[in-house]
Design a protein around this nucleic acid. Sequence first.
DNA 1: CCAACTGTCTCACTGTCTGATACAGTAATC
DNA 2: GATTACTGTATCAGACAGTGAGACAGTTGG
Lengths: 128, 128
Amino acid sequence: MIRIDVTSARPLEDQIAAALRQALAQGEIGPGDELPSVRQLAGDLGVHWNTVARAYRRLADERLLIVRRGRSVVAREPSGQPSRVARTGLREQLNEAIAAAVLGGISSDEIGRIFQEALARFGERRRS
Amino acid sequence: MIRIDVTSARPLEDQIAAALRQALAQGEIGPGDELPSVRQLAGDLGVHWNTVARAYRRLADERLLIVRRGRSVVAREPSGQPSRVARTGLREQLNEAIAAAVLGGISSDEIGRIFQEALARFGERRRS
DNA sequence: CCAACTGTCTCACTGTCTGATACAGTAATC
DNA sequence: GATTACTGTATCAGACAGTGAGACAGTTGG
């Protein structure tokens, strides 16, 4: 379902939350879909289930999931209109990504191309 | 010179390093330019100078700065050809930024527009 | 040489990340 | 309705990273 890198320095909880966000944004997981239990997903990923629980909880706080104990976790319809912080956050993330790429020797053209490829994956909204 | 947010949860060292990378990538700081001393920049930012020193060291490890004790810190010419990790890193950062934006309710069109605005700031390469 | 500057190193403190374990809610079954 | 087997939650302990304090070491100019 999702993939993480246990050797990365980035916290596992972060990685799991980020991977789930991508799956949600790409429509790989749609509103109403049930997600695996914390213990099951943890087993698949090879981490402690508590770590998955915390990632779920974080997304629940972002109103992306509905999670209540005893019941299975489900995805919910994402929020309506974009907030100011969403926009400024996007701008900052893009600035940082572009800066690193430029310093890494990637040309502006190629950065633009890679961006378009990435963005295209979010427009499909495939639902099973 | 650069700006950080001391109230953010993100480590100060990270913020400083990221801000410097942006300044370098945008040409605000060019090869050969001298940077402020760790104590001076720290005073400006309101953080401990040791934190600035570590951020400088990190960029030096990325071969973006030359830093030796006793002498002032100078920017260096960034690397030549792009590496594989630079490209995959860019892809991952973009995926994550786009996912968060989509879930935040920002349309694909607007994401594209914001990206173009951001990218444009890196093409200017203004030098003083 | 000396003084004043530079960055580096080591230490202590604090908070976060991770995993272990006990707990509490839900649902199906008897 | 009690039981059982599953859900997620809460709390704690150990490991580790981020931060700041202070001593240290290299460089430069008087």
